[in-house]
């Protein structure tokens, strides 16, 4: 089966000359479909830069990246917007909900521009928020807001879900609940889930763990057995 993503010698440099920062150096890897992949590493290790490039938010300085058979590095801005719109869901550390829209409307914001979305209510049921459909972000806890963000990301049935520090702003109980939801999405919808995190314990729930240091992929670990997110301690 064709992998979800494939990269070849992917590099990203910010700035020039002696002040240049090499955020990503020659990363070559494959990410199979329908896996939960955790990207681990300290600050500045390049994991977010990698995520941004394969998420269609940034462009590499050199190297190639494919989504299925589409070469992301050759896409125009417009094509990248289309790619994000159709195939990719994002979950951010700070939720990034529209404060002026209710939970259901935040999800509809995405379903209105998607081809074959699920119903907003169904997406919110999947994350356990069927009781909070008509609440505004200001009326919800951080964990609830993050689950709305996940519902929004999965409602368009994306092939991939990118999560950048999804539990970073949450306490451990709420964080576990959010990871549980991500796990459910992967299991029930077959969505490839990429999670960028500092929290090494999260690695236990992944099919595959990518360790980044100094902009390079140091190690790839494939878990024989995966832990249930409810058991994760951090």
């Amino acid at each position: 089966m064709q992998p979800a993503f494939r990269t070849e010698a992917l590099s990203k440099t910010y700035g020039e000359g002696p002040a240049a920062v090499h955020a990503l150096r020659d990363v070559t890897l494959e990410i199979p479909r329908s896996e939960v992949v955790v990207l681990l590493g300290p600050s500045g290790s390049g994991k977010s830069t990698f995520l941004n490039i394969i998420g269609g938010l940034d462009r590499p300085s050199s190297g190639q990246a494919w989504f299925g058979d589409q070469n992301l590095t050759e896409m125009s801005d417009r094509a990248l917007t289309q790619y994000r719109r159709s195939h990719v869901g994002f979950v951010f550390q700070f939720y990034n909900l529209m404060p002026s829209l209710t939970a259901r409307e935040n999800v509809d914001l995405v379903t209105e521009i998607s081809h074959d979305p699920m119903d907003a209510g169904e997406a919110l049921r999947l994350v356990g928020l069927e009781e909070r459909l008509d609440h505004f972000p200001a009326q919800m806890s951080g964990g609830e807001q993050q689950r709305v963000a996940i519902a929004r990301a999965i409602a368009k049935r994306p092939a991939v879900l990118f999560c950048d520090e999804p539990t970073g702003a949450l306490d451990s109980t709420t964080g576990r609940r959010v990871l549980q939801v991500l796990n459910d999405v992967n299991r029930e919808l077959g969505t490839t889930v990429l999670i960028v995190t500092h929290a090494a314990a999260t690695a236990a729930m992944a099919h595959r763990v990518l360790h980044f240091t100094d902009g390079q992929l140091r190690e790839t670990i494939v878990n024989e057995t995966r832990a249930d997110p409810a058991e994760i301690e951090w």
């Binding site: 417009r78 159709s86 990719v88 529209m98 929004r152």
Partner: peptide, 14 residues
């Protein structure tokens, strides 16, 4: 700006 950037990430065109 933050909201608008989020919309761009979600796939809204310029």
């Amino acid at each position: 700006a933050h909201e608008l950037a989020s919309l761009r990430v979600l796939g809204f065109t310029r």
